[in-house]
């Protein structure tokens, strides 16, 4: 069985259907990309996977490692191994980066019946991972995302991913707001986290990101459904022709 199995997923916001029957399965170790025009349901899919309130699943199922994610709250899904790298990381005034990470790690340990993490060892581990992503000590001491540039916010997301070591990562428009240098740093960070036991779903509007994070499979999402699935060549095709075919197809 695949690590992530989405079957016939329907979801709506305020009674308005957005996802209209998504089927998707991702094997352990694979990176899939979802590309699509604005309004196709890309971000909705990421929030539905992470368990955000306000998105009602009306049909279908999502299973991670055989566990039913739809039965879990957002925090339980995170503990089970889901990680959403946000398109717009939220500012948390008064909560330092270090506290945020420690609370997140301890929530996992608590769920696993383990003691809280040793403070010194944790600090060392976080600093080492932060360094490779260009996240400074000063950023870790500051309130999460407060006063961070677009690039700093995204690097901070990837740092959280590195520290929390999830099984399944959703990267929602991680390339948005990044210049080419920042995109490189973030992509290298993501690539370093690719491993046999970990799957990723990279959501993006542009092919550019996929030059840096090379997916195994690409899906085109439009009108709330996956319209086409293929290999890397699909991204190039979209780069050339745009989404016009898909936007019109179901219109």
């Amino acid at each position: 069985m695949a690590l992530l199995e989405i079957e016939n997923l329907h979801a709506e916001i305020d009674g308005k259907p957005i996802l209209k029957g998504i089927d998707l399965s991702i094997e352990a170790g694979q990176v899939h990309a979802i590309m699509g025009p604005n309004g196709s349901g890309k971000s909705t899919l990421s929030y539905v996977l992470a368990g955000r309130d306000g998105y009602e699943v009306t049909e279908g199922s999502i299973r991670l490692d055989g566990q039913d994610l739809l039965e879990m709250e957002a925090d339980e899904r995170a503990v089970a191994g889901v990680f959403l790298a946000m398109q717009y990381p939220v500012e948390l005034p008064g909560v330092t980066g270090m506290t945020f990470l420690r609370e997140a790690v301890n929530a996992r340990r608590k769920a696993a019946g383990e003691d809280e993490i040793d403070a010194m060892g944790f600090l060392k581990m976080v600093r080492a991972k932060a360094k490779t992503l260009g996240v400074t000590d000063e950023m870790l001491k500051r309130a999460v995302n407060v006063g961070f540039s677009g690039g700093e916010k995204k690097r901070n997301e990837i740092l959280q991913m590195a520290v929390l070591e999830p099984k399944f990562c959703v990267l929602d428009e991680t390339d948005s707001g990044l210049d080419i240098d920042a995109l490189k740093v973030v992509s290298e960070g993501v690539n370093a986290l690719r491993s046999a036991g970990r799957s990723m779903l990279v959501i993006t509007h542009y092919q550019r990101l996929l030059n840096h994070i090379e997916p195994d499979v690409i899906h085109v999402l439009a009108h709330g459904r996956i319209q086409k699935t293929g290999g890397k060549e699909l991204a190039l095709e979209l780069e050339q022709n745009g989404y016009a075919d898909y936007v019109e197809a179901a219109a």
Binding site: E73, A74, D75, A78, P89, L92, E103, A104, A107, L164
Partner: peptide, 8 residues
């Protein structure tokens, strides 16, 4: 949601 999405 941001805090919960990290497991808290």
């Amino acid at each position: 949601f941001y805090l919960m999405a990290r497991g808290i």
